[in-house]
């Protein structure tokens, strides 16, 4: 049944580097531009996505033999929506200030291409443990991307990190505006591809 004969660590690494959601696959770019104007928001959304991604992969993989292929898409949607509701209510209760800022994007996780794609191409065809590893790896990869992008954007655009001011003077205001988001994602994507080409021969940093 299993299509991928890789160890758990290889699967996680694949999600983190080889098929990194944002820098390698270039999907789910909407949140990576909209939410990354501060570290706090970026990390919060990254962790939420990590949780949803892992749990969705787990559930889909568990149910893969019972899901009729013709109605699999609505069923994936229901599973994702269930977990997103959990995280949405949790954040609304325990992390009110962040929720006020990025609440909309938490709800939009339902429509994330990365989560949907992994459920369809991986979890639906693999056993439970590899699926969990894959989902976790993808989630960590997304979280890493969000951290890197929001690090540069907040530092350059406001001179702050997590809201603590580090650099005085006039910051590059454009970096916290949407235009700066495109710029940061594009330059970082180019940088990671360059690293990949230079040191790993274009095969992805995991060597997969």
């Amino acid at each position: 049944m299993s299509l991928h004969k890789k160890s758990s660590w290889e699967l996680i690494k694949n999600g983190m580097f080889g098929e990194n959601t944002i820098f390698r696959m270039a999907i789910s770019l909407c949140p990576s531009i909209a939410v990354t104007n501060g570290m706090k928001n970026g990390v919060a959304l990254g962790i939420s996505v990590m949780f949803v991604q892992t749990m969705v992969n787990f559930t889909v993989s568990l149910l893969r033999n019972f899901i009729h292929p013709k109605i699999r898409i609505p069923i994936f949607m229901l599973i994702i929506a269930g977990y997103v509701t959990i995280i949405d209510l949790l954040m609304a209760t325990y992390a009110r200030p962040i929720y006020k800022e990025i609440g909309l994007y938490i709800q939009i996780i339902v429509a994330f291409a990365s989560i949907f794609a992994r459920a369809e191409v991986f979890a639906n065809k693999n056993k439970v443990w590899p699926s969990v590893c894959d989902g976790f790896g993808m989630g960590v990869g997304f979280l890493m991307a969000m951290v890197v992008i929001s690090f540069f954007r907040e530092l350059l655009g406001r001179g702050e990190l997590f809201g603590y001011s580090l650099i005085s003077g006039n910051p590059l205001l454009i970096m916290v505006l949407p235009a700066g988001g495109f710029l940061a994602v594009g330059l970082l994507m180019g940088f990671f591809n360059w690293v990949d080409m230079k040191f790993y021969g274009g095969k992805g940093a995991s060597g997969v």
């Binding site: 006039n170 910051p171 205001l173 454009i174 970096m175 235009a179």
Partner: peptide, 10 residues
Amino acid sequence: AFVLISFPKL
């Protein structure tokens, strides 16, 4: 355009 948006006051 970049500097105008980055440093609107200056």
